[in-house]
Every structure is written in structure tokens, then in C-alpha cells.
Simulated assay, not measured.
Amino acid sequence: MIELTRRWRVLVAGTAVGVAGVVGFAGQTASAEPLLPVPSVPGPVTVTQTVTAVPAAAPVAPANPANPAAPAVTAPVPLAQTIAPASSGTLAEFFKSKDVKMEPQVSHDFKALSIVLPLPSGWTKVPDPNVPDAFAVIADRASTDLYTPNAQVVVYKLVGSFDPVEAASHGYVDTQQLQNWRATDMAMGDFNGFPSAFIEGSYLDGSQVLNTSRRHILATAGPDHYLVSLSVNSSAANQGVSAAADAADAIVSGFKVSAPAPAAPPVPATPAPAAPAPQPGLPQLLGLHG
């Protein structure tokens, strides 16, 4: 994993940021200020990262010590698989090359994954047409900056056959192609058991320098695969403002994606009391209900 020493977020003590879990946004139409563009030109990558593959469940050693013939089974350690980040091809281009269909998901009644998007104090859920296939968009509508700080989540169900680790290797390309891109942090590896790519830095959008932090997660839920992408964006002019920086950090560090918790097993019904045995000498009444 590569961790660059300089990061765009400036954390200043003393500014409290309230965070609440936001899960299952209802799909809406939008209106937040200009958000990040969707690039399409591949960019070069020159670093090597590590993704930890999740091993299959290990067999359980026999619990009966009286059976010495059964050998003890040791759980395998996770296999670290070194991969080279792709030098070309965005995630969308990768899936197209594999004939994998990307089906946009909406937050309303979405239950395949548990997705937690922290909501900093002063931020609100907003509709935004500038975010294609938006699953959820939140923004600091009280900000006085020309560019509204915002966070965006998109979720796609991936229909087709592909290697999630290979897909994650393409997670830098769409960001690295942004105009005047300058990276401050990059990491590729395990995110709560899923392959993931994280990249952070700044780029030029018109006359503004914007900071962005992006994470792409290749999540699995049962037999299904999903791409979950988060981007957190703000003006570089605000990076010295404690509240704005703390809010961005709270979203990036608090964002979670996991398989949903298994449903609790149903409580067995209490069996009805057995009917008393008929006393000797009395006839049995059949088909009668008192």
C-alpha cells in the first residue's frame, strides 16, 4: 500500500462535527452546485499496490480429543496478492470490455448491502442532477464558498463474470485523468473484506482548484457483485477552514460498506398444551369444540 505524506484535509482541533449514520436514501432529483465531471480519457499509473484476498472459511478441527487419528487443522492466513494498478481503462471501460452490465441502484428499499454515509453537522441530503445515477448526495448548503462542499455515492449491480481484484486495479484511472491532477494520497487494498481503491488529491475545474477524495469498493452480497463509489469534494480555497476539513474527514473515515447482518432466526412457537388423557370409563367426544 502506498501512503503519500501530504493530504488535502486540514484537521484543526476545536470544531465539533456531529455525525449521524445515513442509510437508505430515497432517490430524488437534484440541485446542488457544480459537482465533479465524469472523465473518459485514461491516465498513466506507475505504482504497485497490494490487495488482500479474503480466504475461504477454514475447516474446523474436530472437537473430540478422543480421536487422535483426526489431524489438527490450522486456519490459513490471508493471501496477500500484489497487483499493479491499471495504466488505462476506467472502471466503466473495464466492465464494458468484460461484457459486464452496470445496473444503477437507488437507495429506496435497497437491502443488498449495508451502506453508512456520515452526515456532518450542517450538511443535508440534496437532490442533484449533476450526479449520474446518484444513490445519495449530501452537501453543506450553508457554505459561503462558490463551490458547495458535497459527498456523492453511486451504486451499481454488476451482472456478468469478472475478477473483483482486477476491477479494483482500475480504480485510480478515472480520477488521474482530471485536469491538472495532483495526488496527495493513494491506497489499494482490503476495505471491510472487499477489494477497494482509494485516491485523494486536487484538480482544476474551470478556474477553481477542487479537492476530491474517492473510494471505489467491489462488494459481494451472496452471489451478486456491486460497485459502490464515494466521492467527497470541496474547494481548495476552503482547505484551511477547520469545519470544512473536519466534515470531509468525518465522511471519508466514517463511510462503511458491508454485507447486511443476517436476519434473526424466528422464535419457535410455543407448543399448545397437550389435551388431557381421557379418564377411564368416560366416552371420547369427537369433533366437538368447547
Rank of each mutant, 00 (worst) to 15 (best):
Q239G: 14
A259N: 05
A259T: 02
P262Q: 02
A269H: 06
T270N: 15
A269Q: 03
Q239S: 11
A263Q: 13
V241K: 10
V252G: 14
T270F: 12
V257P: 00
S253N: 15
S242G: 13
S258L: 15
S253R: 12
A244V: 05
A244I: 10
A264M: 14
G254I: 13
V267N: 14
A247C: 08
Q239Y: 10
P271V: 04
G254P: 01
V267D: 09
A237D: 08
G240H: 15
P273N: 11
K256P: 00
F255C: 12
P266H: 07
P260K: 14
A236I: 03
A247G: 13
A259I: 04
N233E: 09
A237R: 09
G254Q: 02
P265W: 08
F255H: 07
A272E: 12
A243K: 10
D249Y: 06
V267F: 13
D246C: 07
P266M: 15
S234D: 05
S242N: 14
V267L: 10
V257N: 01
V232N: 05
A248F: 02
F255P: 00
P262C: 04
P268V: 06
S242M: 10
A237M: 08
T270D: 09
S258E: 11
S253T: 12
A272R: 05
V232F: 13
V257S: 03
S234R: 09
S258P: 07
S235E: 04
V267G: 14
V241C: 11
A243R: 05
A259R: 07
G254R: 11
S253C: 12
N238H: 11
A250T: 11
I251H: 00
S234A: 05
P265G: 06
A245K: 08
F255R: 08
A243G: 04
P260D: 15
P273C: 09
P268G: 06
A237Y: 06
A236H: 01
V267Q: 05
G240I: 03
D246W: 01
A261N: 04
A236Y: 02
V252E: 01
G240T: 09
G254N: 10
A243N: 08
A245S: 12
P260S: 08
P266C: 04
A248N: 07
P266V: 13
V241F: 03
